[in-house]
Each structure stands twice: as structure tokens, then as C-alpha cells.
Design a protein around this nucleic acid. Structure first.
Lengths: 342, 342
DNA sequence: CTGTTAGCGCTTTCAT
DNA sequence: ATGAAAGCGCTAACAG
């Protein structure tokens, strides 16, 4: 509709003030005291013209663009990223900022280009997010640029925001113990590789560590540990079948994520066992899946949105933190009950 | 690392050329003929300084920011949006653009603010995306701003990119017919409201229309139509149970989306029926879910990534289109077979 | 109390 | 063949 955008000059002209005066008044600069009349005229003119400052032009002077770069390895692609982004978007909006979203697929080449692209646009700060928490390499950056790692960490650079997996792991075990499960708990999804490789997967290793520490604290050991290479439903299905083929009768399955649990549900159904009457299931992540399952899956949630939110707050506030851990809330549904005495 | 960013002036100084010359050379302006030597010196200097143009400053002069605004009602939030965004990101990157992602939650107030925010940053164009395809209201925009609607349409404004639901609906029916299903097909998820309300749901209405037209073309009618208010697993489960409680024995279920199919699978399992041996299932969307199900669900996919890609291509190319329809590919898995002769 | 002036980094006439 | 100068829209010293 409106042909051209009104500029500060237009406002000044219409109000009969200088450009400077208009600028000061519209920015509500505190010290300067221009007449009340001047204020009114300028504000009225701005209003009438529908004036909005040109952020790019302003940024040229002030070095603030009210824009933050969100660079992720696999963004949009996964349900994983969604919450992270949503949280970041919310916090950014609340702070009057806007976010530039870039995806790199984890490719160093594209990563470098993404960084260049956001830097070219003078972003106020950059968030690096990864889908599988990991140690992320960050190339040289202009020293001034604020950086926070989201679901990732970095030795040198920056602050990072991570889920509190250690506590989450402990919480999951407690969930089962509280209901009376003790010796009949099977762990589904154990994976030596992951447990050792703190580099590749900062958080998942902690999840398992939390689980083991809580078991130990209660003098418990797993009746069985089924290992799974890929944490997908298929693996959960097979691992659970294997468990029963060995004629073991667990009272509860502690699945390392919801997709595994999904597969476990299927195996249980084929086994003629009901959740939670015959066997309880606890899990992690709170995937969309968890709500769809029947009965609903009780799971320790990955707090994606909270993480995204916290990341931009951190970036904008410039508090100095190293690693901020976000609590993993438990989402109670119907998959856990008192062990049956089969 | 690097303290300050190199500017064009720095390049000029180091190369011993004027700023003008440097600008022209680096932009590869065609007509001007500066000496080969000048070219070499400028390029070398730029290289040495790691010079990158400041996009904001350039935009101030050229009115091109190589940035596009992606405004969505429910972005990040849904698996739905992910593909749209991913596709858009890819195409933008390929074209040397970058995307500003904003979410409005469908709230007109926030919608207006989002538009203002991207306009303030001089974006080259705006994509409006919705999760449930619908008619979207777009407030007045500067006439110059390019606009495309993604998974939405708008009477006045813009070009829109939509899935070809009509063809998709027909395709799904063909899938069943090809395998020999005829009189035993039940439709799960019928919803008068949606079928009538072309305004609220441009595409889903077309999906159903396509289905009905293909059935009619083959002189077929559904053995039953189960209506569902909310297209979630719960509804699919109940509708399917209801079907069997009436003692009907369909040879195939045509589910209006994958979440419904998910519920249907559960009901089928409880009924002691196997997919696809006892009853076949066909569906729509190609949700993440569809791959997890056992057996894998054959479904007519919503081509989210292709849509996102096409939207930015359209935006950037400024071809004049009204409505571009993206083909819905069928994803064959294992849920359809020849009808059993129970 | 208010306006002039000088840039931010870049592109683009227009002279030379 | 090359450069000076103006100006995109804005803010910030510095004078009046």
C-alpha cells in the first residue's frame, strides 16, 4: 500500500524540527530537554507518517542490529530442533530482537559460510545449536561477537546451555523405585560407545551416568542391559524381544529414549504383555510420540523450549556463565505402576 | 580473533587504489575497464584483509539486503513447519540469501509486529506460512515488497504455494484400487465441517474432493465413513473401533492422515487383525510416525521441503504465478496388500 | 533548548 | 583508465 517508507527526514520536515531533534525525541534520549511542544509535534508527525526507524541504517551507526544469528547443524529437520528454535524465537521477540536462522548440516564448509553470512549482517550475537549434543568447533570470530552454545559445548569459546541430564537420569530411576520396582528393572538402549565417548555426546553420557549413580545409591543393579546401536524404534523392538527370548521377566523397562520405548511397546504387545499392568516403562525425551502411545508414556523431558529461551537470554544479557543446566521435567503419563507379582 | 572488520576503505588503502575502484573491481562491474594490475592489487588486498562487504551498509544504498522474512503462525513448534523451513533455508542459501524467521502464533497483533520487524530490516521479500493451510489475512505492505504465501492463500495479494491435494487424494484411492480393493474400503476421518469450510482449510477440503472424485470415477462407494472431529490418534482409534463394533469387515482403511492411521493401527491390533494381511491401510502426510509404525505405513506425502524451496524460488525470481501446486509423492511402505478373502 | 556537522560502509554518477 | 563527491537513513559530538 504505502508507496515509500517515511524517513526521519520526513518526520523532521513535517514537524518543523531538525532531524537531530526528531531522532532524540523518538529515541527518548533522557538528558536532552527539548520543549514539550517539540515532543508533541515530532510524535504527531511520526504517528501521522507511520514512521519506523530503518534498523539497518541505525545499525550502521550504533553497531546494534537487534538481530541474532541462530546457526544449527540440523534445524528445522528434526522435531528436536523445533523446541529449541521456538524457545529462542520467543525470547528474542520478548527482547525486541529477531533471529536469522541458518542450517549447516554439520558440514564445516557450510558452517564457515553461515558464520560469514550472519557476520556480514552485523548480528548482535550468535547461537550455535546442535541436535545431538556435542563438542562443536567454532572458527575464529570477531572478538566482540557474543556467542552461546545451545545443546553443545565448546572448550574455549563460550557459554553453553545444556539439559541437566545427570539429574534427569537419576529422576527416571527414582520414578521406578518410588513405585516399588527394584530387582526387575531392565535397561534398554545401553551403548558402550556413547558412554565412553564424552566428546561425541556430552549429554547422553551424563544421562547414563545419572542412571547408574542412582541405581548404585539404592544398591540396585539392572536385571539386564540390552544394548542398541541406533536409538530408533526398530532397535527398541529388537532389544526387547531379545530380552524375552532369554526368558527374563522384567517388572520395568527403563528405555534410554522414547523412540526405543516405542519399539519396546510393540514388542511387549506381541508378547501379550500389557503396559503398565504387566510391565512398566519409563523413558526420556518427551518426543511427540510419547503422547500418542497407548497408554501414554511417562518420560523425562528434554526441555527444548526452555533451553532455547535461556540461550538467547544469556546471549543478550551478557552475564558470564560457563555452563547452564536446564532442568528436565518429568512428564507423568500412564506407563508406570506398581510391579505385578507374576 | 580479528579485532575489527576490514572495510572497503582498508582495501583501497592497502591496494593503493581509490575506494571507488575497489568497489567496482570487487563487484565485478562489467563496463568499467580498470587495469589488470589494479584488479590484481585490489583482489590481493581484499584477500589479505579477509574483506567482506557489510551487507547492511550496501543495502542502504541498493535496497537489497539478501535477506528474506519467513513469518509463520506456528513454526518451529510442529513437525509440520520443519520441512517448510528446511526447504526454504536450502533454497535461500543456494541463492545467497538468508532468512529471518518469525513466529506469530496466529495472533493478528503479533502478526502485525512481525511484519513491521522484518520491514524495518529491509527484507527483500516475505513468505507467509501457515501450518494448517488457510486463507490468511495480510495487512497493508509497502507495494514494492515481494510476497508469497506458503501453505496458505490470499485473495488479493500474492502467489501461493500449496500441495496438490486434489491429485494426492486421487492417488491414494488408486493405490487401494490397484491392489484390488473395491467394495471394502472404509474412509476414516471424514469431517463435514472441513469439507464444507473451504475457507478454514483450503487444502484438506481438496484432499477429500480428490478422494471422492476418484471413487466416483471408478463407480465405487465407501463401505463406511467414520467421522472424526480432531485428527489425532485418539480419534483414529475410536473411529476404527466403532467401525468394528458395527460388525463391518473392511478390506482397507483409507485414513485422512497418519495420526489417524496410527490410532487405527492400535485398534486393529486389539481387534486381532494384522496389517496388511487382514486389512490394508493407506494414509496421508508422511509424518515421522509413518516410518515408525510396524508395518511401515504407505502414505501420500505432504511435500513440505519442496514447498519451502519453491516458495523462496518464487519470491526471488519474481515470476508471476497465482497458485503453484506441488505434487504429493506417494511413499510406499508395507501397509497395503491384496484383499484377503475372509 | 535546538541545529550543524560529521560520519557508519557502501555504491554511483560524473569529472578528469 | 581512475577518483572525488554525494548520499542511502540514522546517531552523536559539538556548537550555538
Amino acid at each position: 500500500m504505502s508507496g515509500k517508507r517515511a524517513t526521519l527526514a520526513d518526520v523532521a520536515r513535517l514537524s518543523g524540527m531538525s532531524i537531530t531533534a526528531a531522532s532524540m525525541i523518538l529515541n527518548g534520549r533522557p538528558d536532552t530537554r527539548l520543549s514539550q511542544d517539540a515532543h508533541d509535534r515530532v510524535n504527531a508527525a511520526a504517528q501521522a507518517l507511520g514512521y519506523r526507524p530503518n534498523v539497518a541504517a541505525r545499525g550502521l551507526r550504533t553497531d546494534k542490529t537487534l538481530t541474532i544469528g541462530f546457526i544449527s547443524d540440523l534445524v528445522a529437520t528434526t522435531r528436536f530442533a523445533s523446541g529449541l528454535i521456538k524457545g529462542a524465537l520467543e525470547a528474542a521477540e520478548a527482547a525486541g530482537h529477531v533471529v536469522l536462522l541458518l542450517e549447516t548440516g554439520g558440514d564445516p564448509q557450510r558452517e564457515a559460510e553461515a558464520i560469514a553470512a550472519v557476520l556480514d549482517r552485523q548480528v548482535d550475537g550468535i547461537i550455535f545449536a546442535t541436535m545431538r549434543a556435542r563438542e562443536l568447533f567454532v572458527p575464529e570470530l570477531p572478538s566482540a561477537t557474543a556467542v552461546v552454545m545451545l545443546n553443545a559445548s565448546n572448550r574455549l569459546h563460550a557459554m553453553s546451555v545444556l539439559p541437566d541430564e545427570e539429574a534427569g537420569g537419576r529422576r527416571a530411576v527414582q520414578l521406578l523405585i518410588e513405585r516399588g520396582h527394584r530387582d526387575g528393572i531392565a535397561l534398554i538402549g545401553q551403548n558402550d560407545e556413547v558412554e565412553r565417548d564424552k566428546f561425541r555426546s556430552v549429554t547422553v553420557a551424563r544421562r547414563v551416568a545419572g542412571i547408574r549413580s542412582e541405581m548404585a545409591k539404592n544398591d540396585l543393579t539392572f536385571m539386564s542391559e540390552e544394548s542398541i546401536w541406533l536409538w530408533e524404534p526398530e532397535g527398541g523392538y529388537k532389544a526387547t524381544r531379545a530380552l524375552f527370548r532369554r526368558n527374563q521377566a522384567p517388572s520395568a523397562l527403563l528405555c534410554l529414549n522414547d523412540r526405543i520405548a516405542f519399539g519396546a511397546y510393540q514388542a511387549l504387545a506381541e508378547e501379550g504383555l500389557r503396559v503398565p499392568t504387566d510391565v512398566s516403562v519409563a523413558s526420556f525425551d518427551n518426543d511427540e510420540l510419547a503422547a500418542y502411545l497407548r497408554p501414554g508414556l511417562t518420560t523425562v523431558a528434554l526441555p527444548h523450549e526452555a533451553m532455547g529461551r535461556r540461550a538467547v537470554e544469556l546471549l543478550l544479557s551478557q552475564e558470564a556463565q560457563r555452563e547452564v543446566l536446564i532442568e528436565m521435567p518429568v512428564v507423568e503419563r500412564e506407563s508406570i505402576s506398581v510391579p505385578s507379582s507374576r
